[in-house]
Design a protein around this nucleic acid. Structure first.
Lengths: 261, 261
DNA sequence: TCCTCTAGCTTGGAC
DNA sequence: GTCCAAGGTAGAGGA
């Protein structure tokens, strides 16, 4: 890792064009050749960067550039695309290099996968007596987070609602809604934070699942730690139920030893 | 900006829990107090970080920690949430600080807004003789990127297709499709890269717009620099046309002086 | 490899 | 402030 502190101007061209006026900044050159341009604020995201694989070429400034104070020019080119980053360095106040070796990597815990695991273990939150069919229930358009079986519905007529639903633009979910008393399964979509996208996703799953006479009618449940108002509205419109999850409470029920650390 | 190169272990707790084993890394402490932990590879994203506003507290290791080689402990706490980052430093091989000042900021060009501007100027790409009604055409659920008028359709019967379309789950768009010969307007959704989300978004707009007798029937066009295969499939299913945009070619037609640099 | 979805997303803009 | 959409999204995971 090479670290340079210098006054510089930066131009990026590629998927977009961007320009950074002359100012003091920190430049990082990683072992894989990638380059990061950081300012002294903002966030963890660099102002500009080049992702690997790429090559760094160091060159002398032109006479014009030298006259304007440029002492050296870095040209960073992506090897697979035509993205290019040009850094014009003026005063360099620091320049050091360090051997770091390969990082052993990050261990994570607590994301959506954990929510899914917890809700799978506490599936009664979806409905009394409900049992888990499986996590990541496969469909033609991707896996449903949880597929749940409703108790005491083995003999329910799967076609009971066929005559009532079909109608407007959201008829698929109207059908689900009007068949509420004879649901045999529940498809659960789990998000940390649910937006409209999650409702659309679940709607696609339900549309498909409700074509299967072995499953239909399938109720939809959107389960999340937080649900955006527009997502809740759209879900309600489509007869999808919303389930707010309390991560801490669910984790409290869970065996603490099952956590990574 | 303070830059430290040191062997360290890191623990983060907050929205998730994460742990970094002992290894050499680069630590950046920005003027706003934010902290970044970088390895010598990967991407521009740090392995761990703390966003401002936060506070950094430096403390001596406990006797146990000192025995294991820890020389100093950084505790970075978010001020608004209970996020916490604990960095246990062992050998410090570099430690320097630099005054950078406030960055003048990034100038950008070439994103979706520019695509929209270009297509508005070159609206005949949507269809021969088509004219622009307006950009950001307002609807109850948000603005449509471009609303376009089809030539010579003033007298076309808006209900001509009513008897043909209604059928399966996607009948709204089937209706749009079968009415192709009598469209009076075109709603254009513009993306740099179109995914299924874009199709869903345009579908919602079309469903709404086609209720308006002054506009209906409204054809849908998904215009993008690249279109994901599944998005194309879904769009085709729903009678939405796909239009691949060549940004460079469109920019060539455009006045080069209108670009930022 | 391509394609999808998640992310401690981040960030900007509208309301 | 909240909420939503875009990102040079990046990165993981599955087909």
């Amino acid at each position: 890792m090479r670290i340079v502190v210098a006054t510089c101007a930066v131009d990026y061209s590629g998927r977009l064009s961007a320009h950074l006026p002359l100012a003091p900044r920190v430049l990082m050159v990683k072992a894989d050749g990638s380059v990061l341009v950081h300012s002294d604020g903002g966030s963890y995201k660099p102002l500009n960067w080049m992702s690997p694989p790429c090559t760094l070429k160091v060159s002398e400034p032109t006479a014009d550039q030298a006259e304007q104070g440029v002492t050296v020019v870095w040209t960073v080119s992506a090897t697979k695309t035509d993205d290019k980053l040009v850094v014009s360095l003026h005063d360099v106040v620091h320049d050091s290099a360090h051997e770091l070796g390969v990082d052993p990597g990050l261990q994570k815990d607590g994301v959506e996968a954990h929510l899914q695991k917890l809700l799978a273990e506490q599936v009664e939150l979806v409905g009394t007596g409900h049992t888990l069919v499986r996590r990541e229930f496969p469909t033609a358009i991707g896996p449903v987070d949880l597929m749940v079986r409703v108790p005491g519905r083995a003999g329910a007529a799967s076609g009971a609602s066929a005559a009532t639903g079909v109608g407007g633009a959201v008829e698929v979910t109207v059908e689900v809604d009007t068949a509420a008393t004879s649901h045999r399964h529940v498809a659960v979509e789990i998000k940390r934070r649910a937006t409209i996208d999650a409702v659309e996703q679940l709607t696609r799953y339900l549309e498909l699942l409700n074509r299967d006479p072995h499953l239909a009618p399938v109720r939809g449940v959107l389960a999340a730690q937080s649900i955006a108002p527009q997502a809740r509205t759209l879900a309600t419109d489509r007869g999808i139920d919303c389930l707010l999850l309390d991560y801490d409470a669910m984790r409290g029920v869970d065996d603490p030893d099952s956590r990574l650390f």
